[in-house]
């Protein structure tokens, strides 16, 4: 058991300040446990989101010593002895109060993505898909919508470019639709125009931040960019499509 100082940002859209709290840390505790201690002992009105406490729901995202992370999966023994732990809301989104911020922008981005459009079921009423054909899609569907990747991406942090780019989370979602064996929609135009795939300059910060270890940049964004290039900038591919118009092209890895 040891005493630990937390420096927590308190305030709302009108401004705020850091307030220090001290917490008795027990073995095995994570940052979220300490926040609960602070609520119980010192500040019952301290706002923060959480649900599962096991890295499954993506509610408890915040910046811990300046680094975006899940507070329920950040163990206290990862800090240096005596190190002060600073907690702030995610920076890319407007703050509501204390550690809770307004992430509704992400929900609006999601709504803009055209819904899944499946092919007909087989005559016996089943859909058939092979495991190896859905592995990649399943990787993207692991996303817990913590929005840490969105918080990290410099394009979304920049007010000027923010409106033109859906962000890594939704690039991964578009990839999961595009690579879905049952989906019949052609999404490449959407990827390029509405979602702004061209804005990503492959810094891979989003991938590093993802607590689900989804290969956002390499497995989702780069393949999508390649498909955009094939479609719009590659004359040979363009000609091929004219000669052999088909439904959706098969996915290239």
């Amino acid at each position: 058991m040891s005493e630990r100082t937390f420096r927590v940002w308190r305030g709302n859209q009108d401004g705020g300040e850091f307030v220090d709290y001290s917490v008795e840390v027990q073995p095995g505790m994570v940052v979220l446990d300490c926040i609960h201690e602070i609520q119980k002992e010192h500040a019952s009105d301290l706002s923060c989101r959480w649900n599962c406490k096991a890295g499954k729901c993506g509610s408890c995202s915040m910046e811990i010593n300046g680094k975006p992370g899940l507070s329920c999966m950040t163990r206290m023994n990862t800090f240096e002895e005596g190190e002060t732990v600073t907690l702030q809301p995610m920076k890319a989104f407007p703050v509501i109060k204390d550690l809770a911020c307004d992430v509704s922008w992400n929900y609006k981005q999601n709504e803009r993505i055209r819904p899944f459009a499946p092919r007909e079921r087989d005559p016996d009423g089943e859909h058939r898909m092979m495991q190896e054909d859905v592995d990649r899609v399943q990787e993207f569907r692991k996303c817990i919508e913590c929005f840490l990747c969105q918080d990290t991406c410099h394009i979304l942090r920049d007010r000027e470019t923010e409106q033109n780019f859906a962000g890594p989370r939704f690039m991964a979602r578009l990839a999961s639709l595009d690579m879905h064996p049952l989906d019949t929609d052609d999404r490449i135009q959407e990827v390029k125009d509405e979602s702004g795939s061209g804005l990503c300059n492959i810094t891979r910060c989003c991938t590093e931040a993802c607590p689900e270890h989804i290969g956002i940049t390499d497995n989702a964004i780069i393949p999508l960019k390649e498909r955009v290039v094939d479609r719009f900038y590659d004359p040979l591919m363009w000609l091929m499509r004219k000669l052999r118009p088909g439904k959706k092209e098969t996915v290239k890895n």
Partner: peptide
């Protein structure tokens, strides 16, 4: 009570 997608079912 929470954000969309965070209910117990997610666990």
């Amino acid at each position: 009570k929470s954000l969309l997608g965070k209910a117990h079912t997610v666990m």
